[in-house]
């Protein structure tokens, strides 16, 4: 134990101590394999598709492009931390369902988190702004339109 110097990361509102041997690990691998947060998806492994998007201090980040040490001291949100502890959905998640924005669902975690990060910064986005904000995330199924609609519907919940 003593040899393992701990590093703290807050993940989905829980403090997690990272063993030193894991600090050099790819963040995506760490989240999926060590923490079993498998909602973080792998689509390309190279930063091109956004399937692995998480929020680091409220900003979208591609987990496949980071090492664990990069996020030392940060707070991380993955899709597993998006709903309320009692299982009720965040309004943005509900909006995705209601708008029909989910087909195969593989892009969904990344889409929801990119949108969440964006709406926290801009709760009154235009359609054009939404399109630009979502550009890092690929979806092959939906043609994006219902994703835009979901984000527009959910935006009001971000008004203070």
């Amino acid at each position: 134990m003593g040899a393992d110097k701990k590093m703290i990361i807050q993940i989905n509102r829980n403090d997690i101590a990272i063993p030193e041997r894991s600090t050099g690990m790819n963040l995506l691998t760490f989240l999926r394999e060590e923490l079993r947060l498998t909602g973080v998806k792998i689509g390309c492994g190279k930063g091109f598709c956004g399937s692995c998007t998480i929020l680091v201090d409220h900003k979208p980040a591609k987990a496949c492009q980071k090492t664990v040490v990069d996020i030392a001291g940060s707070s991380v949100l993955t899709i597993e931390g998006m709903a309320n502890p009692d299982g009720t959905l965040h309004p943005l998640q509900q909006a995705f369902i209601d708008a029909g924005a989910i087909q195969c669902g593989y892009c969904t975690p990344g889409m929801v988190l990119t949108a969440h990060g964006y709406l926290m910064r801009n709760p009154n986005p235009t359609r054009e702004q939404i399109k630009r904000a979502m550009a890092p995330n690929l979806c092959r199924c939906t043609g994006y339109q219902q994703i835009f609609e979901a984000i527009e519907t959910a935006a009001e919940h971000y008004h203070l």
């Binding site: 899709i79 709903a83 959905l89 989910i102 593989y106």
Partner: peptide, 11 residues
């Protein structure tokens, strides 16, 4: 949809 939007769906 619930499983997919919460990341619980296991691919």
């Amino acid at each position: 949809a619930y499983a997919k939007v919460t990341g619980q769906a296991l691919y």
